[in-house]
């Protein structure tokens, strides 16, 4: 049997991109999908469009996973984040292809973005066991005590990812939250949902515990208010919410005293301050020995 004489054309097997909640890939409970088309208007894929109930489920999954992720050793978290970079490296071609098809980039530019994202994961992996030294301090006090401040994860962080540069933008908001042990519910850029779900597949196979990152593809304007007002979310990262009514979101977040990161240009990415923005400072007093 030869394949060279084959006359039939093979049918396409288009992929349905689903949500990423609690380590699983469910469809939206609402059953809704959005069609993704390339810049020329050709059909690329169907992507699940998350509803407020998916957001609720994602927060529940994040809450369940957060304590375990925060109690992993910093060294272990670093290994996991580095593993993400490794797995991403092996699947570079897929990400380049998806960026070309959804963001209309030239392959060379797409490749640059993917490589920048991989490097950003590596950069953050290195910070897991160093951020406490930079963000923490030994405080001088008037008494025979050690007084030590250390940064601790804020908890469950809801994120609106940057609307440009889908993969790099997503990495630049998710990775800093993960460094210290937060769990994340992220709404990726509406324009590039494919790379967000493909990144979820990378995360799911990189020893990241299920639920630590949850990805809700859909309309940020629909989902963000529910996340901003959700009482079980501890911080709200509005980096990509510049086009939304983010003042209202910040007000809703204030109702439950959430930590808020304002939209771009807020905090510069790839800085220790960006990582420390999603931490709480714990200060401990301990008696000194009187020997």
């Amino acid at each position: 049997m030869t394949t060279t004489t084959k006359t039939t054309t093979r049918l396409d097997v288009p992929k349905t991109y689903k949500l990423f909640i609690g380590g699983a890939f469910p469809r939206s409970e609402s059953g809704r999908v959005t069609e993704v088309r390339d810049p020329k208007g050709a059909f690329v894929a169907n992507v699940a469009r998350a509803s407020r109930k998916d957001a609720r489920d994602a927060v529940r999954a994040a809450r369940k996973a957060q304590a375990g992720w925060a109690s992993a050793t910093a060294y272990n978290r670093g290994q996991v984040l580095y593993r993400v970079a490794e797995v991403l490296e092996g699947r570079k071609a897929q990400f380049v292809d998806e960026l070309v098809r959804t963001e209309g980039l030239k392959p060379a530019r797409a490749q640059e973005q993917v490589e920048a994202a991989i490097d950003l994961w590596v950069w953050h992996a290195g910070w897991t066991d160093k951020i406490a030294q930079v963000g923490g301090s030994a405080n001088p006090v008037a008494g025979p005590y050690f007084n030590i401040s250390v940064p601790e994860p804020t908890g469950v962080v809801a994120v609106v990812a940057p609307q440009q540069q889908g993969l790099l933008g997503l990495t630049s908001v998710v990775a800093p939250a993960l460094v210290t042990g937060n769990a994340v519910v992220v709404v990726p850029a509406a324009s590039s949902p494919l790379v967000a779900i493909s990144l979820s597949e990378v995360l799911a196979t990189s020893d990241l515990p299920g639920g630590v990152v949850n990805v809700l593809t859909g309309d940020p304007a629909e989902l963000a208010p529910w996340l901003a007002s959700h009482a079980d979310v501890n911080a709200l990262d509005l980096t990509g919410a510049g086009d939304l009514d983010w003042v209202e979101l910040e007000q809703a977040a204030a109702e439950t005293l959430k930590r808020v990161v304002r939209p771009e240009p807020g905090l510069a990415p790839e800085t220790p301050q960006r990582i420390l923005a999603l931490t709480e400072t714990k200060t401990v007093w301990h008696t000194k020995s009187r020997l």
């Binding site: 609720r56 007002s229 959700h230 079980d232 809703a252 109702e255």
Partner: peptide, 8 residues
């Protein structure tokens, strides 16, 4: 009108 959590 908004979701609650186990802290409440």
């Amino acid at each position: 009108g908004h979701y609650s959590g186990p802290d409440y």
